[in-house]
Simulated assay, not measured.
Amino acid sequence: MTEQKLGDKALDTIINEMVDTVTNSKDEIFQISEDSRNEFEKLSQELIDTKRQVHTLIDDGDKLQQKVKFSRMRLSEVSKQFQEYSEEDIRQVYEQTHALQMDLSMTREKEKQMRERRDDLEFRLRNLEDTIERAEGLGGKISVVLNYLTEDFKHVSDALEDAKEKQQFGLKIIEAQEEERRRLSREIHDGPAQMLANVMLRSDLVDRTYRERGIDQAMAEMKSLKKMVRSALYEVRRIIYDLRPMALDDLGLIPTLKKYIATMEDYNNVRITFQPFGKERRFETKYEVALFRLLQEAVQNALKHAEATEIKVKVEMTHNATTIIVKDDGKGFDPSEKKEQSFGLVGMRERVDMLDGEMKIDSSPGKGTMVTILIPING
């Protein structure tokens, strides 16, 4: 009994130290985010001013180039008919032409320097934007970890029988949160962040194309830019869905699934049909979230791995259970073969087991896949 108390006291000390460390880390990340945001706003304004100066220098250079052209023509005319002009007239025309050429050379040099400054600012802004996004994502995940450490983890700890079980459970929670934070950070960095950086570059290219190659080429670039923005919007929506669809709390399971499947069908160019059966009703949050995640994972597997052209989704609600069926016409696989990176199916099985449900996978190479999940729900 004494060893049990000593173990609990030691564990509480560890938890308190972890809370302090995580809290300090959160404050530091917040400060990094704020500093980066302030620098981002400052550089953004400087970029706007620099672009304005580049445009002004381009216009000035074009006007000077036209003046140099006319001045050279005038000088050529005077040189050919020098007997009709005085030496002073010829000298003035020559000096004027030389002065205009010097002004044009200086203006072009300034334009080159401002272009380099503009490109450097855009590069720094992209890096700052990436830093801000990662800091915000990291801060959100740390808040979740901190919540577990300060509230949920302590409540769970009180229910466990000994210090060893509490330590193992806590480590699993932290490990899972760290992995989720890395995944989300990686998805944002590789997806929307990269796409938005490309949008910034392409938007500048549209302006340059309009000036150099005309409105038709510029419109073509605008259409390409629109596709990039659409892709970035899809990635953002997908990440939000992965975190937690807000409609789930407000509208319930069936309307949220309809919206999710419509979005997946629209952006993946794959036919997905959805058929709900039974009387629609609301469940406890843990059941609605679990059912949504299970169906989401099954659909994502069909889209990413099965190379399916059609996916059929059915959800049946009865008075004591809910059944989910996801069937695709993809390449299929052998369920008896264990794959090194089949974490999706492992996670689905663990979630089903936690809800005392059943999960069955019918598949074979070349004959598609059907996933059937039954979750008992009473009341």
Rank of each mutant, 00 (worst) to 15 (best):
I254S: 04
N378K: 10
A218E: 05
S203Y: 11
E88S: 09
A306C: 06
V206W: 06
F333D: 05
Q83E: 14
L225V: 07
G191Y: 00
Q92L: 10
K338T: 07
L233H: 09
D119R: 00
K141W: 11
E87P: 06
L295E: 00
Y210Q: 13
Q167P: 01
Y234E: 12
I15K: 10
G344M: 00
S25I: 11
V199H: 04
T322R: 01
K42H: 12
L138C: 08
V54W: 09
M219I: 15
P365I: 00
R238H: 15
N16D: 15
T56G: 14
K80D: 08
G278E: 01
S157I: 03
L233Q: 13
R211L: 11
V346N: 08
T285S: 12
V78K: 00
D49N: 14
I215K: 11
K331W: 04
E280W: 01
Q65W: 02
P192E: 03
L57W: 06
E95K: 01
Q167N: 12
Q167C: 09
S86C: 00
A99L: 09
D49G: 01
M264T: 03
Y260N: 01
Q194F: 00
D130Y: 05
L184T: 13
R124T: 07
V68D: 02
Q167A: 14
K286G: 00
Q167K: 13
S342P: 00
E187I: 09
N127C: 11
G344L: 08
E46H: 07
T263P: 07
L100A: 01
D20W: 13
A247T: 10
M18F: 09
V371D: 01
K259C: 04
L248D: 05
A99W: 03
P276W: 09
Q194P: 02
R186H: 14
R108Q: 12
T256D: 02
E178Q: 14
F283N: 01
I377T: 02
P276V: 05
N320C: 00
K331M: 11
R118G: 08
R126N: 15
T318R: 07
E17K: 15
K112V: 06
V346S: 09
L138G: 10
K110T: 05
G330L: 03
V299Y: 00
A232V: 02
G347D: 06
Q113K: 15
I14N: 10
D329H: 02
K69P: 03
I173R: 06
P365Q: 02
H55W: 10
L243I: 14
G347Q: 10
K279G: 07
I240G: 10
T131D: 07
F153A: 14
Q341C: 10
A321M: 09
L196Q: 11
D27L: 15
K360W: 03
E111Y: 08
T263N: 07
D60L: 14
L149A: 00
E95R: 03
R72H: 04
V352K: 01
M73L: 14
V144E: 13
D353S: 12
F274I: 05
S231M: 01
R182K: 14
